[in-house]
């Protein structure tokens, strides 16, 4: 079965996020004073062939640990978006 997963990669707490800080300043300059914090990361979408959602999640966790995120500066969060997706190849 083909599962769609999402890997959200964010700067680790305590690691400077200059992009987030710059966007926060721009939002304040535009009058959005309600904004208290901005963090910028990236999302990697995966289609994974697996027997169960749990198995797909485990595979994606392992990919995140080995390649997708650098644990020195980033935190990865893997989530299952959808199962039985039609391949977009």
């Amino acid at each position: 079965m083909l599962y769609e997963l999402s890997v959200e990669i964010m700067p680790k707490p305590g690691i400077a996020d200059p992009e987030g800080a710059t966007i926060l300043r721009a939002l304040h300059a535009l009058g959005f004073d309600v904004t208290k914090r901005v963090a910028v990361g990236k999302v990697i979408k995966l289609q994974v062939e697996a027997d169960t959602g749990e198995e797909a999640l485990q595979a994606a966790e392992s990919m995140a640990a080995k390649l997708l995120a650098n644990p020195v500066i980033e935190v990865a969060r893997v989530s299952l978006v959808q199962e039985h997706v039609a391949s977009t190849d």
């Binding site: 690691i15 400077a16 200059p18 992009e19 710059t22 650098n70 020195v72 500066i73």
Partner: peptide
């Protein structure tokens, strides 16, 4: 070398972007 864990730490974006 940092990515390969042959040296510790990481290089992130310049603070000035």
């Amino acid at each position: 070398l940092a990515e390969a864990h042959l040296l510790p730490g990481a290089l992130q974006k310049n603070v000035s972007l």
